[in-house]
Simulated scan of single mutants.
Amino acid sequence: MARKKKASHGRKKIAIRRIASEEARHVCFSKRRNGVFTKAADLSTLRGAEVAVIVNSPVGNPYSLGIPGVNQVIDRYSTRSPMPLEPNNPYRASRIGELNAQCMELSRRLDLANARKAEMGARVREAAERNPYAKLVDDIDQGLGSRELKVAEEALRGVRAQGERRLGELMRGGGACSDGCESSEDDGRPVPVRVA
């Protein structure tokens, strides 16, 4: 006979009401107090908020958490005035120091990126000025007419022909090889020589 699997109720919403058992109440208080303090500390750490939590246990023991301090947060809340910057406050001083360091690092990175951008722009302009065909490409991008395109096509064919002639000279061994080539003895074509 197969055993029946118990149906799980899953996560159910718990009604919020006073816990009847005194012992269960103390256990629940301890666990929930730690959870509240953890959340308050996380809020302060993540957002830089000033937090104060004061809790009295069922037997009358007080527990508190304050960042930067319970008294400072309560004084600020009770007077409704912004807390003055205190040079002695280590929390504020360390946070301000961290933010200043981040700001300086980002500023340094931005300066480096701008310098690289300017350098690359200068290199592109210089390369375009040295290349006689760069203007031709710019003109093509701007939309040449059919007559201008034919002139550009003829110019490109001329460049191709020059390249093929030079390649033929190098293949026949007629030109100086700039890569440090030597001609092979069997067919006369240049062969790259590796220099160690």
Rank of each mutant, 00 (worst) to 15 (best):
Gly69Leu: 03
Pro192Gln: 06
Arg109Tyr: 01
Ile74Ser: 10
Gly173Phe: 07
Ser44Val: 08
Pro58Arg: 12
Asn56His: 12
Ala155Trp: 00
Gly168Ala: 14
Val27Pro: 03
Lys150Asn: 10
Pro132Gln: 03
Asp139His: 04
Ile19Trp: 02
Gly145Tyr: 00
Ala15Lys: 12
Leu99Asn: 13
Asn89Arg: 13
Arg33Cys: 11
Asn100Ser: 13
Ala152Val: 15
Cys181Val: 07
Gly173Val: 03
Glu50Ala: 14
Ala49Gln: 08
Arg18Tyr: 08
Arg123Ile: 04
Arg92Met: 12
Ala134Lys: 14
Ser78Tyr: 12
Ala113Cys: 06
Gln142Pro: 00
Asp141Leu: 10
Phe29Lys: 02
Ser57Leu: 02
Leu106Asn: 02
Arg166Gln: 05
Asp179His: 15
Lys31Ile: 08
Glu105Trp: 06
Ala2Met: 11
Pro68Phe: 12
Arg160Asn: 04
Ser44Met: 09
Asp179Ala: 15
Asn34His: 04
Arg11Ser: 09
Arg80Phe: 03
Cys28Ser: 14
Ala113Arg: 09
Ser57Lys: 01
Gly175Leu: 14
His9Asp: 05
Leu136Gly: 07
Thr45Gly: 01
Val51Phe: 14
Arg194His: 06
Val55Lys: 15
Lys150His: 08
Cys181Leu: 05
Ala52Leu: 11
Arg92Ile: 12
Ala15Arg: 11
Val53Cys: 15
Pro132Ala: 06
Ala49Pro: 00
Lys150Ile: 15
Arg25Gln: 13
Arg109Asp: 07
Ala52Ser: 11
Ala7Met: 07
Leu136Thr: 05
Gly48Glu: 11
Ile16Ala: 08
Val124Lys: 14
Val159Ala: 13
Gln102Met: 11
Ser146Phe: 11
Glu153Asp: 09
Ala15Asp: 05
Ala52Tyr: 10
Glu105Ser: 10
Glu98Asn: 13
Ala134Asn: 09
Ser21His: 10
Asp179Ser: 15
Arg32Leu: 13
Glu169Arg: 15
Asp186Phe: 00
Val151Gly: 04
Ala118Asn: 09
Gly180His: 06
Gly143Glu: 00
Ala118Phe: 06
Pro87Tyr: 04
Ala128Tyr: 01
Arg166Gly: 00
Cys181Gly: 11
Lys117Trp: 02
Val159Arg: 05
Leu43Pro: 00
Arg11His: 10
Gly97Met: 11
Gly60Met: 06
Glu185Thr: 03
Lys135Arg: 14
Asn114Met: 04
Arg130Leu: 12
Ser21Tyr: 09
Leu170Ser: 08
Gly174Thr: 00
Glu126Val: 13
Gly121Asn: 07
Arg108Val: 06
Lys135Val: 10
Ile140Val: 10
Lys39Cys: 00
Ala101His: 11
Ser64His: 08
Ala113Lys: 12
Val124Asp: 00
Leu43Thr: 13
Gln72Phe: 06
Gly60Asn: 07
Pro84Asp: 00
Arg160Val: 06
Gly163Tyr: 07
Asp75Phe: 09
Arg123Met: 07
Glu169Ile: 07
Leu43Arg: 14
Val70Ser: 15
Glu164Phe: 08
Lys13Met: 09
Lys13Asp: 05
Leu170Ala: 07
Tyr133Thr: 07
Arg172Val: 02
Lys150Arg: 10
Asn56Phe: 13
Arg18Lys: 14
Ala134His: 15
Arg109His: 05
Asp138Lys: 12
